[in-house]
Design a protein around this nucleic acid. Structure first.
Lengths: 328, 328
DNA sequence: CTGTTAGCGCTTTCAA
DNA sequence: TTGAAAGCGCTAACAG
């Protein structure tokens, strides 16, 4: 195992000073004579030289790095947003470090502090605010530290943090489902953990859209299996269910079927998010569409280009499919 | 926007030398007196000090960083593997930088060189080898550069690169599907791009298992829509289809249904991968199970703990479900 | 136990 | 156009 070649090595091999080598290899404004230039390029190639990114970052005082913090990369909701962030990052020629945070704001805080240590230019926080007020306050504090030293932060989720925010219309999406369910007699809601603000917003919107507030409420954990179990838990006569995430809804539909219930004849089902796979359920799932990939890309652009923290609404659109449409 | 506090600042605020501050803040073996220790800790907290990771990496000559290179994070196959890598990385207290490479080996090569520049300790390459021999050779070269300077590389996919390899039994999985299809008269295969070795392995296995080689072969692009279109392309009398990825199979089933074909009565369908959502199709999808999350975790462990490049087989297990089981 | 000092590899004035 | 040299922030000998 040999040592990585350094700029020193290249300069020596090319018979120039290390300053000259630096200028030709790492985009400096200053020009270098063609003769020396060629020699440096040649030496670098021969030695397989790659600049030490740490040293560069240290010397330049900056790091083309963005942090991506999300609840769970295995969940398609998050992986689609991540895809958008990666695409945008590639365009900006930035590296992205990624980490799962779960729903605990303190985990996000820890990761964000680490990103500050890495002098990341931006951080994208994807996920829901929670009711853990102390933790949220610490996260807000850390965001302020992060931005105070020049970092850019953007959240995808509800507003409430001192950063750019891309805010999907959870309330409006819930309301659209509620309105869609108005004619149904007996309504159930499969919610995520009550401590998540996202869950509260969707529920609040749903109730408003439905025009009444008498749903059977069951709490699950945003997982497929949580959705499946919820299907066992709802009352027998239920005629419509709003399941707050597509992943849960996917399991929920199977749970319903295993209980002998038909969709949509017996029960209407609507999800949230419109991840690609729900189109292929049978019947295909009615859900609230969020432009997940675009949201990821947009969040990074926002962070990188806007100075004043902005909150930008993202429209959530009801997509009616066979799971709530007897004619579908 | 203020400057990030440095160790210097902390030392000054605490009235100690920067060496002492370093010792208390960044895990050194050497002990520091309780009095000074407290003062340093206090100053660090007051100033919101976070060590500059670049400087640390430079001084220590190492970087707790792992690179994760995969085709496409939006695809559940890869996002599940990524989840495994993230979990393992958290245990090792390593950061992970992630990048999409698509199927072009030269893109992977470029990213890997960048990782070498960042002095990453390990790189995990997830995806298929291709028939682009020149590109594969360059990738192999770069892997050798990477490992020559002390980096650890692990691939998830076929062997063939000078690195640890976690090799799912694509051939065996294909063979299991082939055997399962033996009684079916008219067989179709929906393959991915022919340049991918994974595709060739699965096809080769399938033919061997089937015991004949007369399938109708259609090539798609590993996407849901590619699968859907493939369903329009197969001959009318087809009675069984092996679709080489679950994502494609998901779209394929819908395409079949839109053509008025029933699964499994008219056509049996089998996928590959066993991503969670295929259990919830109706009928649920027969597929070849790969322990995707574990594979990700395992790959990182392998890279970090084993010195000699190893190739480890990962068993692929046929899971028969309703899409090929008239009784299911 | 604590402080001094010499780097880690690179960028960037400042002179020549 | 080219080179010498001073840092960037931190760690790790080496002395006290």
């Amino acid at each position: 195992m040999t040592r990585q070649p350094t700029l020193q090595d290249v300069a020596q091999a090319a018979g120039v000073s290390i300053a000259t080598a630096s200028r030709v290899l790492n985009g400096s404004a200053r020009r270098v004579g063609p003769e020396l230039r060629a020699r440096v390029l040649d030496a670098a190639r021969r030695l397989h030289y790659t600049a030490n990114a740490q040293a560069q970052a240290l010397a330049r005082g900056g790091n083309p790095l963005v942090g991506l913090l999300l609840h769970d990369i295995a969940d398609p909701y998050f992986s689609l947003i991540a895809a958008g962030v990666l695409t945008a990052a590639a365009e900006y020629e930035m590296r992205v470090v990624i980490a799962n945070t779960g729903t605990d704001p303190d985990v996000a805080t820890t990761h964000l502090a680490a990103l500050r240590g890495q002098r990341a230019r931006a951080a994208i926080l994807v996920g829901s605010r929670t009711t853990a007020e102390a933790g949220e306050a610490r996260l807000a504090d850390e965001i302020e530290q992060f931005t105070a030293v020049g970092g850019r932060a953007a959240c995808v989720g509800q507003p409430g943090l001192p950063a750019h925010t891309l805010c999907p219309d959870n309330t409006g999406g819930g309301a659209a489902v509620g309105r869609h369910f108005r004619g149904r007699a007996s309504v159930a809601v499969v919610a995520g953990p009550a401590r998540l603000q996202t869950v509260r917003d969707r529920l609040h919107g749903f109730r408003a859209g439905l025009g009444r507030r008498e749903e059977f409420l069951v709490e699950a954990d945003f997982s497929r299996d949580g959705g499946y179990r919820a299907a066992q838990a709802i009352p027998a006569g239920t005629t419509a269910a709003f399941v707050m995430s597509d992943v849960m809804a996917t399991g929920f539909c199977t749970g319903l079927r295993d209980r002998g219930l038909r969709i949509p004849e017996d029960v209407w089902v609507a999800g949230f998010g419109d991840v690609p796979s729900v189109r292929d359920l049978s019947p295909p799932l009615t859900t609230v569409r969020l432009p997940l990939v675009e949201m990821g890309a947009r969040a990074l652009t926002l962070a990188l280009t806007e100075d004043q923290p902005q909150t930008i609404g993202v429209p959530a659109e009801l997509v009616v499919r066979g799971s709530t449409d007897p004619t579908g």
